[in-house]
Write a protein that binds this DNA or RNA. Structure first.
Lengths: 254, 254
DNA sequence: TAAGATTTGTTCGTATGTATC
DNA sequence: GGATACATACGAACAAATCTT
């Protein structure tokens, strides 16, 4: 690792921990380190950068928060290159929207554009094992809801269906984005009209959509999978609008 | 702020800085603090949590890396609630894909699904001022490229066009996602066939697409804007495939 | 301009906790 | 259990930045 290049007399505006964190990032890339690979010890980093322990530790916290390193105590311990988990990436991205009042309409506009696309690419590429898993989730809303609260529960279960479907896709970006939206809708959505009676008609057509979808996926009918999913998404959006759902403001815990 | 509740003898698996960071996050949400609002001083946090300065500072670095707080020295200084910038959110999300070899095909599948949707919603809602800005960017590729390197430059300029277009949209999620993809394609894409001669035909039709797009946006023709954008995206994807473009592996600097 | 006040930034020494052998 | 090798945490002191007077 190169010495912390504090070239010339130029005063860096950034603090030392930030500079150290950036240097370590670059070093990881240059060396082509992989998840699990060991980073130098604290004492070693102190020597190489010529900085005190506290400074180095703050740098490691900066990297830890980004999911780039993990740390273990004890012999053989130390800091290791970490692979950013989907969960952490979702939480970090959710923070971005915290002060930007994301609306249900915003999310559904994107869902309507993306999920039919996913369904189409999945057609003919879903194993019977996976179809069984999807059908199992559907059992959670086999009967129409009898209360608005139960309707919400079913909606969350339905989101699990979509998250699982996303996991089956081959496109890592598409998979992440659909999972992200499902997470937001699951964790951060509140229904403002919890007093309304469940809409049995929407339940019926929603369930039929998913049955049709699985059928199209099984038979490799991409066009039909796409169309069914689009209808399903539009219906879900209508349900949310009917319930005057809104996105709640809170940070997602680490 | 509540005392750091280390209830009973249960050993928390998470380190103290992490727990402090989580407590501060919760506190910000509970108090409904806004960007710019002041957080307690280091000394105050030390007292409230009963922890040493270094521990508190590590907690602040955890929050800083997420873009949740900013810190200033001097009188009137301290830590402040920060709004996560789009730039930081893009960088944090890009880290997620670092070890997951995102392909150009993945990105374009999502672009093709999203950008026509953006174009449609924008039709009739773009001011003449904004149209002028877009046309100005188009001047950067008024003439066909004469080298593969120049062709790449024009492609980057074209991405600026799309990023600017995204900024004009009202959907914060859609805007972010399109901006994110433009950033990846700008910063992380390398063309493997820099020796090939520029494809004048693709340049011509690409330019014509953008002209048609602006016309449709100006005239509020949503359907046409959508169709033109889709054709344009498909053409861009073909160009990238023609050049055997790949996503480079590197962390985006803070 | 200069001095003083306030707050974060950084260091050093020491002690403790934790996992491995 | 004891030795070893790590990170974790504390406390006191000093440095640097920046605002006010």
């Amino acid at each position: 690792m190169q010495q912390a290049a504090e070239t010339g007399g130029k005063k860096s505006r950034r603090s030392r921990p930030v500079r150290v964190a950036e240097a370590i990032k670059e070093w990881v890339v240059e060396q082509g380190l992989q998840p699990g690979d060991r980073l130098p010890r604290e004492t070693e980093l102190m020597e190489r950068f010529g900085m005190a322990k506290g400074t180095i530790r703050e740098a490691m916290r900066l990297l830890q928060a980004q999911g780039l390193v993990e740390t273990k105590t004890g012999p053989g311990g130390g800091s290791f290159v970490g692979e950013v988990s989907a969960e952490r990436a979702r939480a970090l991205l959710a923070n971005f929207f915290y002060f930007r009042n994301l609306t249900i309409g915003d999310i559904y506009q994107v869902r309507i554009a993306l999920e039919p696309e996913l369904a189409a690419t999945l057609a003919g590429h879903v194993s019977s094992r996976q179809l069984a898993e999807l059908r199992e989730i559907m059992n959670e809303y086999e009967e129409p809801a009898t209360s608005a609260a139960q309707e919400r529960e079913q909606h969350v279960a339905s989101l699990k269906f979509h998250a699982l479907l996303a996991e089956m896709g081959g496109n890592v970006l598409l998979r992440f984005l659909i999972g992200f939206m499902a997470q937001i809708l699951t964790d951060l959505t509140v229904f403002r009209r919890l007093y309304t009676t469940p809409n049995v008609e929407l339940w019926r057509s929603g369930r039929q959509h998913q049955i049709d979808l699985l059928d199209a996926l099984e038979n490799g009918d991409a066009a039909r999978a796409r169309n069914v999913m689009r209808s399903h998404m539009e219906m879900a959006r209508d349900l949310m609008e009917d319930q005057e759902a809104v996105v709640m403001k809170r940070f997602i815990a680490e």
